[in-house]
């Protein structure tokens, strides 16, 4: 099975680690550049994108994530960090996906919600989306596949080895999206396939 690094600068780290471990992945917490050695894929958890983005640069983790060598799955703040456009903000980011995002796009915490997600890339019941001060995708560039929407807004998308979700599958018992990342993206990388 694969070794997955969960970025552990701040945020919902233990929840992702729990889900990935239960799917058989070896999980390593990433706090500095060298922690990325021997990793097959990375999860960027939810948290505060301004805080995480700043620390990603300072502890020199960003360049290797930006180089495109590793599959990345980002949730919420993770999606924001993966976008190359952030509406009205010049905050630090990885910018690995050709998407534009709007932060807190559904409103403040008072408006945070749960809702089923149409069109998700998993069989069976729709995913239950947990949206917390969540972003959505406003624009997609070439090569970006839209995988899920709520209210017509894009909340799940993929560009090659990059997967980004506005919501928090790690806060539910549904492991299908993590499994999709592992089986359809990480394990299909040339050195693991």
């Amino acid at each position: 099975m694969a070794t997955i690094g969960v970025l552990a600068l701040q945020g919902a780290v233990r929840e992702h680690a729990r889900v990935l471990t239960s799917l058989g992945a070896d999980v390593r917490l990433i706090k500095r550049r060298d922690d990325l050695d021997g990793i097959d894929g990375v999860v960027l958890p939810g948290g505060e994108s301004t805080t995480i983005g700043m620390l990603l640069e300072e502890y020199e983790i960003a360049p290797r994530l930006r180089s495109g060598e590793l599959p990345i799955f980002g949730t919420c703040a993770g999606m924001i960090l993966m976008a190359d456009e952030i509406d009205g903000s010049d905050q630090p980011r990885l910018g690995v996906m050709r998407i534009g995002v709007r932060r807190n796009a559904f409103g403040r915490q008072r408006e945070s919600f749960e809702e089923a997600i149409g069109g998700a890339p998993v069989a069976g019941e729709p995913l239950r989306g947990v949206f917390i001060r969540a972003p959505y995708v406003t624009d997609v560039g070439p090569g970006v596949e839209v995988l899920g929407r709520v209210d017509g807004k894009i909340v799940l998308c993929r560009q090659g080895q990059f997967l980004a979700a506005s919501f928090h599958p790690e806060l539910t018992d549904d492991r299908r999206l993590h499994r999709y990342f592992l089986e359809e993206i990480v394990l299909r990388a040339p050195h693991l396939a």
Binding site: A12, C76, S112, F113, E114, E115, V130, F131, I132
Partner: peptide
Amino acid sequence: EVGTFRVKAGLAEMLKGG
């Protein structure tokens, strides 16, 4: 569903380590 306990407690989960 707005304001469920999961989204309330979930915001705190996002603040962890901060």
